[in-house]
Design a binder for these strands. Sequence first.
DNA 1: CTGAAAGCGCTTACAG
DNA 2: CTGAAAGCGCTTACAG
Lengths: 363, 363
Amino acid sequence: MFWGAAKVTVDKTSTGKGGVATAVGRGGAVHIADVAAHAGVSIATVSRALTNPDRVNPATRARVLEVVRALGYMPNVSARSLRAARTRTVLVMLPSFLTPFFTVLLKGVDDALSELGYGLLMGSVHEHDQAVRLVDMTAAGQADGVLLLDGRIPRGSARSLAELHVPIVGVSVPLPGDAPVVLVRERQAAAAAAAHLLALGHRRFGYITGPAGNHVDAERWAGYAATLAEAGIAPAAIHRFPGDFRVETGRAAGRRYLALPDRPSAIFAASDMMAIGFLKEVRGAGLAVPGDVSLVGYDGIEFADYCEPVLTTIRQPREAMGRAAATLLVRLIEGQPIAPEERRPELAAELRIGGSSGPAPAS
Amino acid sequence: MFWGAAKVTVDKTSTGKGGVATAVGRGGAVHIADVAAHAGVSIATVSRALTNPDRVNPATRARVLEVVRALGYMPNVSARSLRAARTRTVLVMLPSFLTPFFTVLLKGVDDALSELGYGLLMGSVHEHDQAVRLVDMTAAGQADGVLLLDGRIPRGSARSLAELHVPIVGVSVPLPGDAPVVLVRERQAAAAAAAHLLALGHRRFGYITGPAGNHVDAERWAGYAATLAEAGIAPAAIHRFPGDFRVETGRAAGRRYLALPDRPSAIFAASDMMAIGFLKEVRGAGLAVPGDVSLVGYDGIEFADYCEPVLTTIRQPREAMGRAAATLLVRLIEGQPIAPEERRPELAAELRIGGSSGPAPAS
DNA sequence: CTGAAAGCGCTTACAG
DNA sequence: CTGAAAGCGCTTACAG
């Protein structure tokens, strides 16, 4: 699924027993020279038949491919990469802990990459030295490009990355220069959440934030606050609960909420995980959702559907985001032209109304 | 995080601007010859200073490493792998869709591998040709060994894998021969679930199964049924709902359950995801959990804690499982001796009582 | 402890 | 359309 050349050499055909088992059995030690000898051609021709089929006489090509199949030959990846100076592999930078959000994004990336004949190397972003390592790995010839899925990458590092001419594409993270970035219309989506809550009659609002400096958090807040402002609610009147997208900070927000003298009746959380944490705490304290407080999350993870009540949320097109980013990166790597207007695709996220949001309490 | 040699050459040191930026800036084109020239030694010495530090004079080594740092040299991975005939990379086979269960397992794998200086290549197992591809990839020199995390691999393929001498370690999946496998005491855990339900007074039981032929499903069923049998409940009297670990099949089980004339009062699901799906359906139909039906899941995913009510479940030591498997595989790859009694470690899984299980209804 | 040299398995101009 | 040959960037016996 992630090794492009596999399409050429294996698949259903080499599943059989016969010569294959023998060949692979002795340690996968079938080399291009073996194929050449069996097919009665030079190794150059074998190589071409595999990587540039149309530069080889059809009959010769057929013979070579038949021998490849019979012997179960698989080109050595290191040798190929070394010589060709490209790995057909992409380094995907993720947070060290794979959340349900990234899991699905990654599936989109994996599927697209696989179709394009590229492999996937995963890199977890731990505390620091992130960007440095990215550059190092690509510079060391381990990958042809980088997919930045983790918005937590510090801006400075992203800048140096771009300057270092490593093909890079971001998802929901602004990159300097003209590096392609797949975006989501965060403001629009957050505005829809605000409009939904306003329509239910709410007038006292809260917001559970993402981590400081995070791009999507800023956008979500901007869309939410702007729409509320249009309805006469000043941003300063919106109670902000600090969070970092994780469930624990949602719980902390819930506890802070419970301690408030004058509680908002509507809460918008910048992630579903935080909404779920908040829900747990306030329901645990005996509050009714949405009877006492309405709640809207963000992301649209599967689990939102299994909350009690079902979480109203903004569904991000995670798989499409991953696919779009992977496709752009491969085009970038392969030097295909990317028009300016294609560099910042903005995908739509949609409000999905569940049971966690309802009419404002009479109060 | 997944590239061993990074420890030698980079980390905090090369973060600076100076020469590094310049060197990396021109495309990472710093080669071992550049380092050798700057340090006034041969490339052989540079190579040794990096891979076999103690075979180099300390003063020479220090000088070389200083130049490496200053130039930001990173050995080319393909060249190194090609020459050394090893990649220091492990291929991890996973289901194509990363569930919360595998996500955490993978984190354990990643952490351990990283500490051991190994990289991680992810392979999703799609429908077929799975094992073939595994062998192909390792045979093609892309990885030094395989970690089998997906119990769905057909036995036959696993057998051929083992016969092909590819270093392989499984998690919760029996492998032929003496290939190491990290196991969990499934029977014991399932027995604990049964004992818990019996203690609550239940006498009518159900079981939501895993996919047909799955090893852990068989073990869980065996432990559950055996314990119930000791209490006088014949296995044939346990209602089996077919499932495959995924949430959808849990929902289907819920619908079947609701249609039953004589409903069991206690259900044990072979996965949390199925328990969550079941919960959703039966609560949606107005049943009370545990008032009408008690529910016990399996896995201990985080989300079990956010269900309403909190799911009683069997918590598997996912991270430890991943770490153990990764460690065994590296030992196998590096030819270190592994005593027979170390080849099948059995980790404990523990019952975690939540709110989804309660006293049997009076009826 | 260090260096010169072979060679890992391929791909790719360069001829023909 | 095909082949001979160079060479990708390293590591590793082999000498010294």
